[in-house]
Nucleic acid binder design. Structure first.
Lengths: 219, 219
DNA sequence: AATTGTGAACCTCTTCACAGCT
DNA sequence: AGCTGTGAAGAGGTTCACAATT
């Protein structure tokens, strides 16, 4: 929950805001200057009512009879999502997934800048990947403090994930994007999101195995 | 929807089944032979009623007064999810994300075997990554047919994603795990899941920016 | 005594439908 | 005339609470 008016915003709404943001970028690049809720809906396989309802939680951004000004709505959503500025991010784990994330354009483009990379493997510490030198996780406190980091990405094996998290909690990291395939425990004042690719592909396996009536798009 | 009894299974339930499966593996490795819904719940930050309800859609696997036999429930969930066999998978896109997925243990361990990798970049075609030679996407039909592939992973830039999907549709691929940050369109008899890491980190940004009362775990 | 399985109650999210504005 | 913004209705998912079972 969050808002000035005290209403609760669902996770689903926040996810859709991210999608609207991308759609607006796409529309603007193609010369569209206004866009209707119907058009935004079609670009994301949603209903127009859903789009309007989502936006209405945060304000009245549209013009009746006309739709939404693309650039204006984009700015508003960026502000709502907190991506109208840059975030310094720490990455823990310089394995395959971690190294791929170092060069992930979508993070950079939305202002999430990976400023420091950690590992505990002596064979990796000191290596340079995409211009960043891997640091020893033992020095995590200092680096996190120096870079004013509030968001960390965890890309370590499951068995190390909780101890890494515990250490990050001490460093006053506030939010974690967790790629380890395990449920991590954090105090109530922290935020976690899990990115578990195996769960997604298992859902496809389930669908192919069980579902008679397909559904258009999941997630 | 899916079941013999015709009931609809929610996406959320399927995702949780994947989590229970992992928890059961973990429990078994630590010597537990039975487990209660309460224990399964605690391992995943859920309620015991939720766990029992999820499982009850598929049968009565437990024993009153005792709980669930770990190995037995694990087998049942594997069967429900369709991961009691192997799936041949195609990967389209040998960029950073694609190459990381080639060596992603979680896929292999659950029986998702990447059998063929495609790219359209002449500089990548022919290269060998993790023992697989990158194929020309122009030959996709033949390779998909030869490997009996029903599930494809798309890890290409957004602008290529839909045309790749259209081609895969012609190849009778049935399910797609989409890493491209765009909503792809597929016919009603296909399944799509989107893996969009930028959306997840933006949700963290939203939380840090807006939420006063934190919530324990998202996703 | 302990724990499942499940109908009913509850709560949350989505869709409808239309008043209101441009 | 067209499209938004939103209260109300509807659909769907979660939790409660307890009978049933071991």
């Amino acid at each position: 929950m969050a808002l000035a008016n005290g209403s609760k915003i669902s996770d689903a709404t926040v996810r859709r805001l991210s999608k609207y943001y991308r759609s607006l970028k796409y529309a603007y690049d193609r010369g569209m200057r206004t866009i209707s809720s119907q058009e935004l809906a079609e670009m994301n396989n949603l209903t127009a009512a859903q789009v309007r309802k989502d936006l209405s939680f945060f304000g009245a951004f549209g013009r009746r009879g006309l739709g939404y000004y693309v650039a204006d709505l984009q700015r508003n959503i960026a502000r709502i999502l907190g991506i109208n500025k840059t975030w310094n991010v720490a990455l823990v784990g310089a394995g395959n997934i971690g190294r791929a994330l170092l060069d992930y354009d979508q993070f950079r483009q939305q202002g999430f800048l990976i400023k420091v990379v950690f590992d505990n493997d002596p064979n990796k510490i000191g290596n340079v990947y995409h211009g960043l030198e891997v640091r020893d996780f033992n020095n995590v406190e200092e680096e996190i403090r120096n870079n004013k980091i509030k968001i960390a990405i965890i890309a370590v094996p499951a068995q190390f994930a909780q101890s890494v998290v515990d250490r990050l909690i001490e460093c006053k990291v506030r939010a974690i994007l967790n790629f380890a395939p395990i449920t991590i425990q954090v105090p109530d004042n922290m935020f976690v999101r899990n990115e578990n690719m195996a769960i997604e592909i298992e859902a496809l396996s389930f669908a192919l195995t069980n579902r008679k009536e397909p559904q258009r798009t999941m997630s």
